[in-house]
């Protein structure tokens, strides 16, 4: 969730900065290119972490590691490659 809040904070800040930036010569295309690129990178990270936290596999509190993961990976469950 931290990363989501951080993203929101960033986008809010970026939108304010954007108004100033446009006045400084950041063209409409450049502004769009920057926001789309940053949003894509952020969304990829958020999507990955969301899947990781939903999965909850590989939990090993003693720090020595299980010999095998407690459950198969999703790809194996669906029938492998």
């Amino acid at each position: 969730m931290n990363i989501v809040f951080a993203t929101l904070a960033f986008l809010l800040q970026a939108s304010e900065a954007g108004e100033a930036a446009q006045a400084d010569g950041l063209s409409g295309f450049s502004w769009t290119f920057m926001i789309v690129s940053m949003a894509a990178v952020t969304l990829l990270a958020v999507w990955c972490y969301a899947r990781i936290f939903r999965g909850k596999r590989h939990f090993d509190p003693d720090g020595t590691g299980p010999e095998h993961s407690p459950v198969e990976g999703k790809v194996d469950q669906e029938g492998g490659v």
Binding site: Q22, L26, S30, M34
Partner: peptide
């Protein structure tokens, strides 16, 4: 200069 000019430098193809 301004931060916007820095961003323009990095994001204007």
């Amino acid at each position: 200069g301004s931060p916007g000019e820095g961003l323009a430098l990095l994001w204007t193809p």
